[in-house]
Computed example of a mutant assay.
Amino acid sequence: MKVLVATEKPFAKIAVDGIRKEIETAGFELVLLEKYTNKSQLLDAVKDADAIIIRSDVIDAEVLSVAQKLKIVVRAGAGYDNVDLDSATAHNVCVMNTPGQNSNAVAELALGMMVYAVRNFYNGTSGTELMGKKLGIHAYGNVGRNVARLAKGFGMDIYAYDAFCPQEVMKQDGIKVCSSVQELYETCNIVSLHIPATAETKNSIDYALLKNMPKGSLLVNTARKEVINEAELLKLMEERSDFKYLTDIMPARHADFIGKYAERYFSTPKKMGAQTAEANINAGIAAAQQIVGFLKDGCDKFRVNK
């Protein structure tokens, strides 16, 4: 069987070596498509693939329609909104992610952004400290839990809201549980955002939610840009000179944010949460192991489509 690694942004060599070892030890063939520049290259490469490992690469209905032998797609990372799940299901293709493999990397970036923000972007002026600040974690999944772990070391007062995580789990971690998303934002000086982009969450971080954050507030987004209502966030920042927004997913209206609020806004040039050597290796090898488990034994533990 042929396993294709299709990565516009390639894995590090050490990660590729680890993937190759897992795939070839299992008796499968590994094919690399790295740094491709147009979709036609992906369409050609996927035609005879039994499995694909991707990163932020888009697997849509067109790709799935030409991949006649395809059985599984694994997204090396937590988010999987770059894969058309309905089309995959229609083509009898299993889709998995690799939850937890990038979590520490994303959490460290979130805390780094908080420090950068409260120290006024290191511009030489007097800032504030994270110690004692009320941190709200919006979604207490793998990344949120790592954010909480790191924030404890800063002496932060930690709150969380997650509609799907049992409150007992958060309480056992020493987290103060909010009963609603509104309560989280009304309570916390800093909110770290970790919700996925779904029909329910897209544009849900809006003016009505953010306007009630305490004075001197900070929103850190290492999740997805689609969850932010950009027009309403711009309106809020116009009204509140005390509000800061930092993100590692460049907004569609980046020019407006940087043009008007450069002293209170920062975005990385591309998504950086998982861009560490460790996360790169962990996610790539986990993806390879999941493919081997699926092709050999039918294990679909991390399946995300029905």
Rank of each mutant, 00 (worst) to 15 (best):
Y261V: 00
G132M: 02
N92H: 14
A160P: 12
T37E: 12
L4H: 15
M113K: 09
S126D: 12
D248A: 15
F266W: 13
G141Q: 02
I281Y: 13
E226D: 14
K176L: 08
L109I: 09
A223F: 11
P269I: 13
N280W: 02
V177F: 01
T7D: 07
E263I: 01
K260G: 11
Q41C: 06
I190N: 09
I258D: 10
C188H: 14
K69N: 12
V143G: 01
K225T: 10
F28P: 03
A12K: 14
M96Q: 08
G298D: 03
M156H: 09
S180D: 04
A199F: 03
I14T: 13
A90Y: 08
E278R: 03
K270R: 15
C178K: 07
A6K: 07
P166L: 12
G259H: 03
E129A: 12
L233M: 15
N142D: 08
N282H: 08
N104A: 06
K152C: 05
D173A: 13
L32S: 09
G124C: 10
E278V: 09
P269C: 15
N92K: 13
L4I: 09
D248L: 08
S56T: 04
I205P: 02
L33I: 09
G174R: 05
V31C: 14
A90T: 03
N38V: 00
E8K: 14
L30I: 10
A252R: 13
T201V: 11
R20L: 02
V106C: 00
L64P: 05
R149L: 08
M272I: 06
V147M: 03
N104R: 12
M272T: 05
K47C: 01
D173R: 10
L130D: 03
R75G: 00
I195M: 14
A49P: 02
I137E: 05
L150I: 14
A51M: 05
E278Q: 13
I158S: 06
D57I: 06
A88V: 08
V63A: 13
I158N: 13
A252C: 12
I205W: 06
A199K: 11
I54R: 02
L246C: 02
T98Y: 00
D17M: 04
T222H: 11
E200R: 06
V143S: 02
A160I: 13
T125V: 13
D300V: 06
F164S: 12
I249L: 06
T268H: 11
T7H: 08
T125P: 05
Y122D: 14
A262F: 01
L295E: 03
A252M: 10
A76I: 00
M237P: 00
